[in-house]
Amino acid sequence: MTDIWRMIARRLLLGLLTLFVISLVIFGATELLPGDLARELLGQSATEETLAALREQLGLNDPAPVRYWNWLTGVLQGDFGVSMATQKPISELVGARLGNTLFLALYAAALSVPLSLLLGVLAALWRNSIFDRASNAMALTSISFPEFFVAYILVLFLAQTGIFPSMVRITAATTFGDRIYMAFLPALTLTLVVTAHMMRMTRAAIINLLASPYIEMARLKGMSPLRVVLRHAVPNALAPIINVVALNLAYLITGVVVVEVVFVYPGLGQLMVDAVTNRDIAVVQAIALIFAAAYVLLNLIADVLSTITNPRLMHRR
């Protein structure tokens, strides 16, 4: 067990290092953006004096390393700075949106992960059957259309008829039940988008193992096909399945921009789009860093789970 803790500690440190590098990249990328922030804020008619005063106030005259250092130390203390557009603290702005995004991601994950694992296992069990082909075809169809198209199709059939709302108006006061109801369409859109990937990976990982001698052994011991798949194939296919699930969960947090815009869902993606439009650089930086952290954390969890489920790594000779 000490081995696993040591591994987690090492991976956490590596994750922090990755985030540090990413923060450099994010900062560098925003530095490269053309345009003068002060002029953006004050407009074309501003005089040179007022521009100079604003630059001084925002610290824009400091050299880049100094500004990076100030930004980074702020971030480490939970202070992402102030939004230029709204003049509110970014942590406040992002906090509520992050909650909404995580809610939608978990909602979609709760629908898609069990569904895709179930479909994947069944497709492997009845491989090359009608069921296998049909589920494959449907999954591929849903992944082949762009997200916004899937979203509009759902709106057409499920919102125009008045069953579910096409716009998600969530505030701090909205009850859990209402949230589930209102966020159903975006969650369903995301489910349709990510299920195919996870299902096909589950199916492939299991089928890949079905030619193994130990699977033949299980069949020769008289085990039923379902037991062969669940007890003998799935435990050995967990590592690739866990990794593809983690990758898709990360996508659910970071890749939902389009879906949030379509359904006017008050999440991080919407906020990011708005911030980019307004040249609200500090907000863009904060959200980019949060997205990166989500990827790093989910991959770390996937690695730890893959290790725990592999007896060869857990029980040394």
Binding site: P213, Y214, A218, L220, K221, G222, M223, N236, P311
Partner: peptide, 24 residues
């Protein structure tokens, strides 16, 4: 047939290392 396999007719494979399930 499945009810016979393992119960009345058993099998011993060439490579035991490959024929035991590594997960159990």
């Amino acid at each position: 047939r499945r009810a016979l396999r393992g119960k009345r007719i058993a099998y011993v494979a060439q490579s035991a290392a490959a024929s035991f399930n590594p997960a159990h």
